[in-house]
Design a protein around this nucleic acid. Structure first.
Length: 272
DNA sequence: CGTTCCACCTGCCAGC
DNA sequence: TGCTGGCAGGTGGAAC
């Protein structure tokens, strides 16, 4: 489900709702059978901790407390919501009861998500982040970086964009969108992207992600932010999910096929 | 090493 | 109506 704009939107909603920095008074792990198994004893250390911040790195959310970072990846279908009463839904896996009497609940039908508790400053931290690339909306992701990092690279530029070791946060929707904005076909070999194209691609990635954040993300199927609202960027998509439809720019039919195992969309006339 | 393929899971929708 | 197959916003490990 979520790429950078969706995770960022969820983060902002959580930050707003947790502004009073509540304490975690109880936790309940209903199902720890996520991508990596979690045990209740691991998450139990959160009880008594104060939620001081929520941050985002790549597509990960981080719930910060005095002693811990609860690292969360939403996989394809993860979501967080607040409940006042005892509301309980299918696929609720983890519940944090807060000192303001609300419950913060993690729901994830496909269970591709990640919940992992890491002590602040521990070595484990580096292991969680692995070898994540730069944030696309920060300074170190620029055309010089893109140029250098694509030299000698034989994979497609779309696969490159979606490789989180190269740059984080770009997934299947926004890779197609950014390449459309930059006028570059998804199948182009990354190592053959020209310098000028690197420049327009960096601009396109930034612009697409920022616009999507402004719209609160894209709700294609079931994405909701932390307060239950849908995003709006699905209405502004240029190519993703629009195979066979007319290009908004040139009216040519949007093409689609599978690239590196993922559905891919582009305009054969606007993109070279 | 770089790259591709597939499994991991449930839900939903189109087509029969 | 009900079944089946295909597909879904991500990731990491196996295989080449």
């Amino acid at each position: 489900m979520p790429e950078l704009p969706e995770v960022e939107t969820i983060k902002r909603g959580l930050v707003q709702r947790l502004a009073r920095k509540p304490r975690i008074t109880a936790i309940e792990l209903k199902c720890g059978d996520l991508r990596r198994p979690v045990r209740e004893e691991e998450l139990g250390a959160l009880v008594g901790q104060r939620l001081t911040a929520v941050t985002r790195r790549a597509k990960y959310l981080v719930f910060v407390t005095e002693k811990f970072n609860l690292v969360n990846h939403l996989g394809m279908t993860g979501s967080w919501r607040f409940e006042k009463g005892g509301g309980h839904l299918k696929h609720d896996h983890f519940v944090m009861t807060l000192s303001d009497k609300t419950k913060l609940i993690y729901n994830d039908p496909r269970r591709f998500g990640l919940l992992r508790l890491v002590e602040t400053g521990s070595d484990e931290h580096a292991a969680v982040w692995g070898r994540l690339g730069p944030e696309p909306l920060e300074r170190d992701f620029d055309s010089g970086y893109l140029w250098k990092q694509t030299r000698g690279c034989r994979s497609s530029i779309k696969a490159w964009l979606m490789d989180q070791r190269r740059v984080v946060g770009v997934g299947n929707i926004y890779a197609s969108e950014a390449l459309f904005q930059a006028g570059i076909r998804p199948r182009r070999q990354a190592g053959r992207i020209k310098q000028a194209e690197c420049k327009s691609l960096v601009t396109a990635v930034r612009r697409v992600l920022n616009s999507a954040i402004d719209s609160g993300g894209s709700t294609i199927r079931d994405y909701r932010n932390a307060t239950g609202s849908e995003g709006g960027f699905q209405n502004l998509l240029s190519v993703y999910g629009r195979g066979g439809d007319p290009c908004r720019h040139c009216k040519n039919r949007i093409a689609s096929n599978v690239l590196a195992g993922r559905s891919t969309f582009w305009c054969p006339r606007c993109q070279k």
